[in-house]
Amino acid sequence: SISSRVKSKRIQLGLNQAELAQKVGTTQQSIEQLENGKTKRPRFLPELASALGVSVDWLLN
């Protein structure tokens, strides 16, 4: 799922939720909701993929 991929990649990069949120241009709460499965397809998906160094396709599939 996107939530597990985001969380595992974030941890692999040594980032906390607030640091990832800053790179993406969103809030820590938005990252938390995404990782908890409350958000399925965030509006900041391209920025998120870029910050994590992955493709949008990788996040979604």
Rank of each mutant, 00 (worst) to 15 (best):
44 F>E: 04
29 Q>Y: 14
7 K>T: 09
27 T>M: 05
45 L>R: 02
30 S>Q: 15
22 Q>V: 12
58 W>L: 03
24 V>A: 10
40 K>F: 13
38 K>Q: 14
21 A>H: 01
1 S>C: 11
17 Q>W: 12
61 N>L: 09
42 P>V: 12
17 Q>L: 11
43 R>Y: 14
17 Q>E: 09
15 L>A: 01
29 Q>C: 09
25 G>C: 08
29 Q>E: 14
37 G>V: 03
54 V>W: 03
27 T>G: 05
27 T>Y: 04
16 N>A: 09
46 P>Q: 13
26 T>Y: 04
55 S>E: 08
24 V>P: 00
37 G>M: 05
54 V>D: 10
13 L>E: 04
38 K>T: 15
9 K>M: 14
19 E>Y: 04
7 K>V: 10
6 V>I: 09
2 I>L: 15
30 S>K: 14
18 A>T: 11
28 Q>S: 10
37 G>S: 05
51 A>W: 04
25 G>D: 04
44 F>I: 05
2 I>Y: 05
35 E>R: 01
34 L>G: 02
14 G>V: 03
21 A>F: 00
45 L>H: 01
23 K>C: 08
6 V>D: 02
32 E>W: 11
1 S>I: 13
8 S>G: 10
32 E>S: 10
52 L>N: 00
44 F>R: 05
52 L>D: 00
21 A>W: 02
1 S>H: 10
12 Q>G: 08
46 P>F: 12
36 N>R: 10
48 L>V: 06
21 A>S: 04
11 I>S: 07
51 A>E: 05
17 Q>S: 07
18 A>C: 10
51 A>K: 05
49 A>S: 06
14 G>Q: 07
34 L>F: 07
26 T>W: 05
50 S>I: 14
54 V>Q: 03
44 F>W: 14
26 T>H: 04
46 P>A: 14
11 I>C: 10
45 L>Q: 01
60 L>Q: 09
4 S>N: 13
57 D>E: 14
46 P>W: 11
53 G>K: 08
41 R>G: 07
58 W>S: 04
60 L>C: 10
30 S>V: 13
57 D>F: 11
46 P>R: 15
35 E>M: 03
39 T>G: 10
30 S>P: 02
4 S>P: 04
59 L>E: 00
40 K>G: 11
41 R>P: 07
15 L>C: 05
49 A>R: 00
29 Q>F: 12
29 Q>M: 11
2 I>P: 04
34 L>V: 13
17 Q>D: 03
14 G>H: 07
33 Q>V: 07
59 L>R: 00
54 V>P: 00
24 V>E: 01
11 I>F: 08
54 V>M: 06
29 Q>G: 10
45 L>W: 05
18 A>G: 09
51 A>C: 07
41 R>K: 11
15 L>N: 02
43 R>I: 13
39 T>P: 08
11 I>E: 11
53 G>Y: 06
23 K>P: 00
12 Q>K: 08
46 P>I: 13
20 L>T: 02
60 L>R: 08
25 G>E: 04
43 R>K: 15
60 L>T: 11
1 S>V: 12
41 R>N: 14
52 L>I: 02
6 V>K: 00
12 Q>E: 15
55 S>L: 06
37 G>I: 03
17 Q>N: 03
6 V>T: 08
29 Q>V: 11
26 T>R: 06
3 S>K: 06
16 N>F: 05
22 Q>L: 13
44 F>P: 02
56 V>P: 08
27 T>C: 07
20 L>A: 01
19 E>S: 07
48 L>N: 00
54 V>H: 01
23 K>L: 15
31 I>E: 01
22 Q>D: 12
36 N>L: 12
61 N>F: 11
3 S>T: 06
17 Q>T: 15
44 F>L: 06
61 N>P: 10
